[in-house]
């Protein structure tokens, strides 16, 4: 998606994030896409932008830095792949609230960085077991690169 820096400085930051989510949703036809971001001046993480959600639970979910799939991705700065939730996961299923909230079975989450520091996470998820291949990895990374361009404006607001 073409990005004009001035666009992000105005009020349509929400539109930009949601448009990026919807665009990715179309390109990889997954069930759910969510952007988790750290709160302003606070390490807690919430899900301000989602697409393909089946309920409004995401609006209330706040995970601590290092907790949940998004908190872990932000804390470690590494991608995270869950193939068949809740089997073969580290810890308990309750440590993955967004997977429970949206009844996801397979998911892939990637860090979104500001000046090289992870401040958010982009997650794609499926409600049935679904392999995540190289093409999807590539498309997710591409969306993350776009989001990284306007993410600094989110923290400036």
């Amino acid at each position: 998606m073409a990005y004009n820096k001035e666009m992000a400085d105005v009020e349509n930051l929400d539109t930009l994030f949601l448009a990026e989510c919807k665009n990715l949703h179309k390109r990889i036809s997954c069930d759910f896409i969510g952007v988790a971001l750290q709160k302003f001046h606070h390490p807690d993480v919430n899900w301000p932008y989602v697409c393909g959600n089946t309920n409004e639970k995401y609006k209330h979910v706040t995970v601590r830095y290092g907790k949940g799939i998004a908190g872990k991705v932000i804390a470690t700065g590494s991608d995270m792949l869950i193939s068949h939730f809740p089997e073969n996961i580290l810890g308990k299923s309750t440590d993955y609230p967004i997977m429970l909230a949206e009844r996801l079975v397979s998911a892939y989450a990637v860090p979104i960085r500001v000046n090289g520091v992870p401040k958010g996470s982009l997650l794609i998820g499926y409600r049935k077991e679904h392999p995540i291949d190289g093409d999807q990895f590539y498309k997710v990374k591409e969306a993350v690169e776009n989001m990284e361009e306007f993410l600094p404006s989110y923290f400036k607001n």
Binding site: K57, H60, V61, V63
Partner: peptide, 8 residues
Amino acid sequence: FTSTFGVI
């Protein structure tokens, strides 16, 4: 509980 799981 609500802030963890989103269930009110």
